[in-house]
Computed example of a mutant assay.
Amino acid sequence: MNIKFLSDLSLCCKKQPILINRYPKYAAFVFFTTALLISYFPFKYAFASQWGLSISVLLIIVVLVLNALKLMTSPLTILNGILIAVIIGGMLTFLSFSAPLAAGIWTPAFLVSLYLLFPFKVAWLVALFFWLILSYSTVAQLTFDIALRLSLSSCIVLMLTTIIVKIYNDAISTAEGLATTDVLTGALNRRTMLEVLHKEHERVTRYKQQCCLVMIDLDNFKTLNDTYGHASGDELLIQFVKLVHESIRQNDTLFRLGGDEFMLVLPCLNIADAYAFVARLQKLVPQVINYKSVELGMSFGVCEMQEGETLNELIHNADTALYQNKLARKANTLL
């Protein structure tokens, strides 16, 4: 159960990154400023001999400052978010019994911060959990009228934050999708390919693992476009991308370079296995994708990423292998 929960949480974080990491310097500034603004209270509580309150606020300040410093050098992880939520949420819960009015005033800001620390769905659940706890403890300590006002104000802030963050996340997802994917086929675009190749090249260099590139060109595509029009060609491109996505592994990636040219990145696969896989795909394409009298074919070139090789050299090698495969197919030789 715990393993499944952590797996789902990890998947959720990959799909929706932590919001605070989009703007780390601004977030660090907010953390530092908040710590500075509340730095008065530990001294106030200490002079009043309220040591529990003083230590609670001091812990919150320490957490804010440490995470602000971390944000200046590296992004926060989901574990950092959990640590911040547990410590600050725990201290606010303690304050809600000792100084409920102060806790009620700080609660909305804490609930908003949770949307910065966690992916959206996780943040909503965590914020709702803390709102229920803090509202209950406030009602138990203050008069019903004051407690109700504090709880309602926190609830309104929580709902508005949920709506705003949801709209923001949807807008960002749409913008990122348009920036990274081919609008027609849904395959990733050339710009994204260069980013992925750079990361894979670093992984191959650092961990001595294997990675193969496959340059793909569709045969007879120009004939189909000229004979039946671009709408038919677009439909076959969509079918081809769907076929490839159904055939590749989860960590393999397909990119559309333009026209009928595509690139496949196959991590953790040697050149022999990559060649065998793409050869099977090559035979499958004309069986699955055809339009009237035109049978769509596929030529490909495979190369393995080598340590010390530049990305331009790598792409050139894949392109050369594709050209050789095209010549061989024209000579009716299957490689």
Rank of each mutant, 00 (worst) to 15 (best):
P119D: 12
K4S: 05
G90I: 05
F41T: 07
T180H: 15
S135E: 10
L296H: 00
A103Q: 11
S7P: 00
K199P: 01
L76A: 05
A321Y: 03
V139G: 07
L64I: 05
T320D: 10
V157T: 14
L69P: 00
L9R: 14
V57M: 06
A231H: 11
S293V: 11
L116W: 11
I238Y: 07
L79E: 13
A179I: 04
G104H: 00
G52I: 03
G104S: 01
V294A: 06
I61N: 07
I38P: 01
K15G: 08
I238T: 13
N189K: 05
S7A: 14
L335V: 15
E246R: 10
D182L: 09
C268A: 15
V112N: 06
K15C: 04
N270S: 05
L197I: 07
H198K: 12
V278N: 11
E202Q: 15
A102M: 06
A48I: 10
G89M: 11
A127S: 15
I271W: 02
G177N: 15
D182P: 08
P100S: 11
K222G: 04
C212Q: 02
V196D: 03
Q306H: 12
A140V: 10
Y323K: 11
K208M: 13
M263D: 00
I164K: 00
D145C: 00
L59F: 15
L37H: 04
R190W: 05
M159N: 05
K292I: 09
F31G: 02
